[in-house]
Lab assay of single mutants.
Amino acid sequence: VTLFVALYDYEARTEDDLSFHKGSKFQILNSSEGDWWEARSLTTGETGYIPSNYVAPV
């Protein structure tokens, strides 16, 4: 499992996005959609889309 960590805070703009804070960790579920990845937050357990340029591999 590849884990990613948030580099910045992000406020969701749609109900499909995940809001998160810098330092939040994610499991990436689908990275084939270009700049928006489907991810599960390891902090909240919620699933949604995150901007790929806001995260980096742990």
Rank of each mutant, 00 (worst) to 15 (best):
R40V: 14
S52P: 07
Y54G: 05
S19H: 08
A56P: 01
D35I: 10
G48P: 01
G45D: 06
L18K: 01
E33H: 14
T43W: 07
I50Q: 00
S31A: 13
F26Y: 02
L29F: 06
G48T: 02
L29Q: 05
Y49T: 07
N53M: 11
K25Y: 15
G23W: 05
G23N: 05
D17S: 14
F4W: 15
G45T: 03
Y8E: 07
A56N: 05
S32Y: 10
Y8S: 06
V58D: 09
L3P: 05
F26N: 00
E11S: 10
V1T: 13
R13Y: 07
Y49R: 14
Y8W: 12
L18N: 02
A56W: 09
I28K: 04
L7R: 03
L18V: 06
E38S: 07
A6P: 00
T44F: 03
T2S: 11
S41K: 11
A56Q: 10
S52L: 04
E38R: 10
Q27K: 07
E11C: 12
R13E: 11
D17H: 15
G34K: 14
L42D: 05
Y49D: 02
T47W: 09
K25N: 07
D17P: 02
N30S: 11
V1L: 13
A56L: 09
S52Y: 08
F26H: 01
L29H: 05
T44V: 02
S41Y: 06
V1A: 12
Y49W: 15
V58P: 04
E15D: 12
S19G: 07
P57E: 09
V1W: 14
A12Q: 06
R40W: 10
Y54D: 01
Y49I: 09
S24N: 14
H21M: 13
D17T: 15
L3K: 05
G23Q: 02
K25C: 14
D16S: 14
A12D: 02
W36G: 02
A6D: 00
L42E: 09
K22D: 01
F26Q: 00
Y54C: 10
D17F: 15
S41T: 05
S24F: 11
K22N: 04
Y54E: 01
G23D: 05
S32K: 11
W36I: 07
V1G: 13
V58C: 12
E46H: 09
V55P: 00
T47I: 15
E33S: 13
E11P: 04
D35E: 13
E38F: 15
G48M: 04
P51G: 03
E15F: 10
P51K: 06
A39C: 05
G48K: 01
R40A: 06
T47F: 08
V55D: 01
T44N: 08
P57V: 08
W37C: 04
T44K: 03
V55F: 09
K22M: 08
G45E: 05
V58A: 10
D16M: 14
F20D: 00
T44R: 03
A6R: 00
E46M: 10
A6L: 02
A56R: 11
P57Q: 09
L29W: 06
G34N: 13
D16A: 14
G23V: 01
E15Q: 12
Y54N: 03
K25T: 13
A56E: 11
G48Y: 03
Y54H: 08
L3W: 09
I50T: 00
N30P: 04
H21W: 10
S31F: 15
S32M: 12
L42Q: 06
S19Q: 05
R13C: 10
T47Y: 09
F20S: 00
A12T: 04
A39D: 01
W36E: 03
P51N: 08
L42F: 07
I28L: 06
T43H: 11
K25Q: 12
I50K: 01
F4M: 08
D9L: 03
S32A: 12
G48A: 03
D9W: 03
V5Q: 07
S24A: 14
D17C: 15
K22S: 07
V58Y: 13
K22C: 08
N30W: 07
I50H: 02
T43Y: 08
L3C: 11
P51Q: 05
T43D: 15
F26E: 00
T47R: 10
T14N: 14
V58F: 12
Q27Y: 14
D16I: 13
F26A: 00
W37D: 01
Y10V: 01
S31W: 13
R13S: 11
R13T: 13
W37Q: 03
L42P: 04
E46N: 08
Q27H: 12
L7T: 04
S32E: 11
S31N: 12
G48H: 04
T14P: 02
Y49E: 03
T14H: 14
D16E: 12
V1E: 13
Y8F: 11
E11R: 08
S24G: 07
V55W: 02
V55S: 01
A39K: 00
E33K: 14
T47Q: 10
S52R: 11
A6G: 04
R40E: 07
S19T: 09
I50D: 01
